[in-house]
Each structure stands twice: as C-alpha cells, then as structure tokens.
C-alpha cells in the first residue's frame, strides 16, 4: 500500500464528514439555490480538465489534449452557469419591507 494513496483516502473520508456536518439544517427556501450552488462547485473538475488539456515537454499534444479541452469547456459551462443561476435565484429572496 502506497502511503500517498492512504493519505488521499484520509482526505476523502474527512471531507465527506465535513460535507455532512456543514449542512446540518437547510430551510426549504434554500433547497434549490443550495443545490445549484453546490452543483456549480462540482465543476471543480475543471482543475482535472486543465491538468489533462495542457501541452508541455512531459505531456505531448494528443487525444488527451482534445478531450481535456472539451472537458474544460463543459466544466466551465457548469461553473459559470451554476453560479449565475444561483445568483439570479438568490436575488429574488427578500423579506417584505
């Protein structure tokens, strides 16, 4: 067993617990914005897309670059679209003055 993999699994387990704890009680008003906001965060896969889309001495141009570029575009649709629709929804929630 490789020590780094073990470390990654620790990180994963702890992050899952953190995820459960961070959202203890969500009011129903926020179910949709929370979902679309966290949906935008799942576009974090953009980092993986950048990693595979780069061209450098170690990573020559190839099929990986093309798929990486497509992944960059798809992830950014998710990120920008997700945060923008969430902002639009949040703007509507207001109290009666």
């Amino acid at each position: 067993m490789n020590a780094f993999i073990l470390l990654e699994i620790y990180v994963f387990v702890l992050a899952c617990f953190a995820g459960f704890q961070l959202i203890s009680k969500v009011p129903p008003t926020l179910h949709t914005p929370l979902m679309s906001g966290s949906n935008a965060i799942s576009g974090i896969t953009i980092l993986g897309a950048m990693y595979v889309a780069k061209v450098s001495a170690e990573a020559p141009f190839g099929a990986s670059t093309i798929f990486g570029m497509l992944a960059c575009a798809l992830a950014m649709i998710n990120v920008v679209g997700g945060f923008a629709v969430t902002e639009r929804m949040m703007r509507m929630f207001k109290k009666k003055d």
């Binding site: 992050a15 617990f17 953190a18 995820g19 459960f20 959202i23 179910h31 966290s38 799942s42 974090i44």
Partner: peptide, 14 residues
C-alpha cells in the same frame, strides 16, 4: 478530492 466529496455529501443530505 475535497471539493468533490463536499458536494457529494451535501447532495446526499438533500
């Protein structure tokens, strides 16, 4: 890993 599992866990709660 961290951000992905944060979203994964919060989605499960909903």
């Amino acid at each position: 890993i961290v951000s992905g599992s944060l979203v994964g866990a919060s989605g499960i709660i909903l």
